[in-house]
Amino acid sequence: MQTALLIEQLLNGLQFGVMLFLMAAGLTLIFGVMGLINLAHGSLYMIGAFACAGVAAATGSFWLGLLASLAAAAAAGAIVEMTIIRRLYGRDHLDQVLATFALILIFSEGTAWLFGSFPLYLDIPPLLQGAVELPGGVRYPIYRLAIIGVGIAAAFGLYLLIARTRLGMRIRAGESDREMIGALGVDIRSLYTVVFALGAALAGLAGAMVGALQSVQVGMGEPVLILAFVIIVIGGIGSIKGAFVGAILVGVTDTMGRILLPALLTAMIGPAKAAGIGAAIASMLIYIVMALILAFRPQGLFAARG
């Protein structure tokens, strides 16, 4: 196996990982601050992708589409938070699961009604088309590098927001004692709406960026949502740092496993069987990693709440 292929796959894994981080960061933030498990986060991802594809098709500009995806996902998040999610904070997790499951059905079917059941396609903007030569003789698409860049920038921005700003201070305070910061005069209701909209915007951004790599279709969000769950279980619920480490781990493990396992098995049992078995095991790999981590650290790698 050539080094060039390995480097390329490693970058693909990294790109997948940062995209997953954008999803997982929102989920873990929402859980950490409001104690809410939000299954409908995948729908916000889908809304971002559809908004980007719709606006890009209408205006011809990917960049306007990207802005639209942020705005649409944040707006959808804020509206849902104010009308429905707000009633769920005091409820048990079962009610939260059911209500947000209902939201998935409503969002998915509503989107299918609006846009039809056929997938939409989104073109990569001209500025980011083509590939660059990396050291080691690897040619790699600029667009995927740009996603990695945006993801890392978003992670850094999130870190600055939470560690260095007044809003971030309130978010951290909300995580440790929500009654107390309410008593200190912080409007906790609008803080919750802001946090939810922020998480939604991150999911929408991820959806829009991935939309140009894959097709944009109803139901695209849930497989990513479940991976994001695996990530925050691995990283520790409520921890942004855990989400970042978990996302990179899952992205790289999944991508490399799909390349390396069949190759490894070919050497052991011959190519005929290896393709099938290798693919089957590779598809289970991240869940096996999750199980192993949980066996040793049930609270995840960076548990935020003891």
Binding site: I37, H93, I226, V230, I232, V233, Y287, M290, L294, P298
Partner: peptide, 20 residues
Amino acid sequence: ISLRTSGVYFIMITLAFAQM
């Protein structure tokens, strides 16, 4: 594995294993 945890963890882990 999943009963070692509880609450939200349990929900997410059972979901993940089914997906596996």
